[in-house]
Amino acid sequence: MPDDDPTQQVSSPAGAGSDPGGRFERLYADAERGEAVVPWDLDRAHSLLAEWTDRTRPDGSGRRALVVGCGFGRDAEHLARLGFATVAFDISPTAVRTARRRHPDSPVRYETADLLDPPRDWLGGFDFVLESMNVQALPAELRRRAIPAVGRLVAPDGMLLVIAAGRRDDEAVEGPPWPLTRAEVDAFAAGPLIPARVEEIAAPDGGIRWRAEFRHR
Rank of each mutant, 00 (worst) to 15 (best):
residue 49 L to K: 08
residue 50 A to P: 01
residue 50 A to G: 04
residue 51 E to R: 14
residue 52 W to T: 08
residue 52 W to V: 00
residue 52 W to Y: 06
residue 54 D to M: 05
residue 54 D to V: 00
residue 54 D to L: 05
residue 54 D to Y: 00
residue 55 R to W: 02
residue 55 R to T: 04
residue 56 T to L: 03
residue 56 T to D: 04
residue 57 R to K: 14
residue 58 P to I: 04
residue 58 P to S: 03
residue 59 D to T: 06
residue 59 D to W: 01
residue 59 D to G: 06
residue 60 G to W: 03
residue 60 G to A: 05
residue 60 G to H: 04
residue 61 S to N: 03
residue 62 G to V: 02
residue 62 G to S: 02
residue 62 G to E: 01
residue 63 R to K: 14
residue 63 R to L: 14
residue 64 R to I: 09
residue 64 R to G: 08
residue 65 A to L: 07
residue 65 A to R: 09
residue 66 L to C: 08
residue 66 L to N: 04
residue 67 V to E: 05
residue 67 V to H: 02
residue 67 V to F: 03
residue 69 G to E: 05
residue 69 G to C: 10
residue 70 C to A: 15
residue 70 C to G: 02
residue 70 C to F: 04
residue 71 G to T: 11
residue 71 G to A: 06
residue 71 G to F: 03
residue 72 F to M: 11
residue 72 F to W: 09
residue 73 G to M: 01
residue 74 R to N: 09
residue 75 D to S: 13
residue 75 D to P: 08
residue 75 D to K: 10
residue 76 A to C: 08
residue 77 E to V: 15
residue 77 E to N: 04
residue 77 E to W: 10
residue 77 E to I: 08
residue 77 E to D: 09
residue 78 H to N: 12
residue 78 H to Q: 13
residue 78 H to G: 11
residue 78 H to A: 12
residue 79 L to C: 15
residue 79 L to F: 13
residue 80 A to G: 15
residue 81 R to M: 02
residue 82 L to A: 06
residue 82 L to G: 10
residue 85 A to W: 08
residue 85 A to P: 10
residue 86 T to N: 15
residue 87 V to D: 15
residue 87 V to G: 11
residue 87 V to C: 13
residue 88 A to C: 09
residue 88 A to W: 12
residue 89 F to H: 11
residue 90 D to I: 09
residue 90 D to F: 09
residue 90 D to H: 06
residue 90 D to G: 09
residue 91 I to A: 15
residue 91 I to C: 10
residue 92 S to V: 11
residue 92 S to R: 12
residue 93 P to W: 12
residue 93 P to T: 13
residue 94 T to D: 05
residue 95 A to W: 02
residue 96 V to S: 07
residue 96 V to A: 06
residue 96 V to M: 10
residue 96 V to H: 05
residue 96 V to P: 01
